[in-house]
Design a protein around this nucleic acid. Structure first.
Lengths: 184, 184, 184, 184
DNA sequence: GATGAATGAGCTTTCATTCAT
DNA sequence: CATGAATGAAAGCTCATTCAT
């Protein structure tokens, strides 16, 4: 089992981080041990601790990556509102998006909350992420309270992940429309 | 060291559960081991496994208790709306309430989400809790979408625990008022 | 391999301590790991940490035992000087004693010095031991400087363990006689 | 971080050895790893193993240096006895000398004993050192038993490092005077 | 019923050493 | 020459769980 040659493995570091996120999503931060990750990434155990001397270095790097990945599509979309479309619709679709990715994001989000409540550097990571998310919201929807929209969207997403049938696209749309005035 | 007499400890079971919740709040589900709890509750290690044969029995019992405790004030309050007061105000105060208890509840909530995403019986526990919370909301605010209100309130509470200054009482009030029509 | 039944192993604790001293003598404090000791004592690894939660607990217990064992023969000998014999002779024999035991004692002594220079509780253990040794010396040889005799005897013993031929019985006797006036 | 330029580091080898001795004094042979030393000496890890292929090469070189350093002042002092001074006094001062250096020497001595008891090449190193020390003693104090004086001085030094108040200058002087006849 | 003792499994981390560049 | 990257081995320690008493 394993790749033919492990020597000179460029971006091994990046692969370890990506794998870590997968393992956390699948088995929780608690289940993401050096061993489980090293097996999943097909990397020797000694290599893990070489690149990430402590487990927290690794977990933190993984969540840094998570917040970047999660944010970038939202950020790079358009620089300004799209004239042709109701910009509120993009938020609706974000909450309602289905599939593995969405569920995975919610799982990782909950894990990150747990860490943030316990250790300040994770709390700070979340705050940075929130600030960036708010900036993106403001760019799309000037004039609304971005903190509120962000929080509401997250609350809906979290609940929806447990009881999807109660948070249909329609419900989500009505909620967001009640909070955001229609564009001129 | 310890209590003078451990014999005849009537509600030891209940005390273990309460202590477990404390330990989870303080150190996470991960840090709530038989040992840490037995020390915190001043109960012999062997007694722990006697009352709760597996660790999950204990953790689950603790979260059952948590959802009951958290819900009861809201539930037992008044059976119907209070004529003298805007019923929306009670929700505002719930989100905005400060102090240890609120923070503790958010921490435990996040821990419970993590478990719910991983194991079905925790997911089911959360759903039951949500259903009860919605019933209480409906009782106070007939005609509103209780699922939405519950989700929004939770989203606000979670964000507020990380960035309190951005979710003032006023912000919360305005958000809820936008979603709930004023009582007649 | 091993004993037929490990359950109910009375004085397992004592056996672990004795084995630890053996392993330290054979392979140094550094080589006395939970694993090497558990194998030498035919005790499961988990049992080691049950009885001695930290490695230092174990090493310290071993050296406590060492200082007691080393001291007791000297202590319990006679309550007062023996009229028939020159009491200085006993000291000479202690230094000159041959065989595994003596070498082992010197090895353990050196290991203990290393610990004492680094951690106060070992330093204090050595001081207690020295005090008891001095008391025994004073009992046998009233009027002499017990601290000096103790130090000299140790210096001779240490050097003798490396270059035995240069510290014959005669050399040792002459040295001690020069420091201790002949009994009346 | 570190020195501005590591290039062209002439006596890097010597600096590594000196640093190794410092690290051993501070943290023991056990704590003197390639890593701790490379950091303390601000030398790349790869450079350590280049100059000293095995850890023992390094430790042994350090103790060779130690025995030379410790000996040289005694050796190079005067070629013969100083007419003006009681030569015994120099020994007294050596034992009684205070300060970091003395303590450090005792620590390193104990560490060296531990190695000497375990591996022959360290034992031989100590014997060579002892022979040189004896020659120096004989040069200063012709006619005395240098092995005895050396051993006694060491015993006093070792005990003094643990219980300084019991080995005052006076006690040490009296002891040595009892063993060494006054010069003519 | 209650509990101290016991233990196998597994975790994080450190380390000496090797080697491609 | 010099060195960063790599890695197998082993260390200290924690823990859920079992079980004899």
């Amino acid at each position: 089992m394993g790749s033919t040659s492990r020597r000179s493995d460029p971006d091994r570091r990046a692969r370890i981080i990506a794998t870590t996120l997968d393992v956390i999503a699948a088995r929780g931060v608690h289940g993401a041990t050096y061993r489980t990750i090293s097996e999943a990434a097909d990397v020797p155990l000694g290599s893990m601790t070489y690149h990430f001397p402590s487990r927290d270095d690794l977990v933190f790097a993984a969540f840094e990556r998570f917040t970047e990945d999660l944010f970038s599509p939202l950020d790079t979309s358009t620089t300004g509102p799209d004239a042709d479309e109701d910009p509120r619709e993009r938020l609706v679709q974000m909450v309602v998006a289905d599939g593995r990715d969405r569920q995975r994001d919610m799982v990782l989000l909950a894990e990150l909350y747990v860490l943030a409540f316990r250790e300040e550097h994770y709390a700070e990571l979340m705050r940075q992420w929130m600030r960036r998310a708010r900036a993106a919201i403001t760019r799309q929807l000037p004039g609304v309270s971005a903190p509120v929209i962000d929080a509401v969207q997250e609350g809906l997403g979290l609940h929806r992940s447990l009881m999807p049938e109660d948070y249909t696209e329609d419900v989500v749309r009505r909620t967001l429309h009640a909070l955001i005035p229609a564009p001129a």
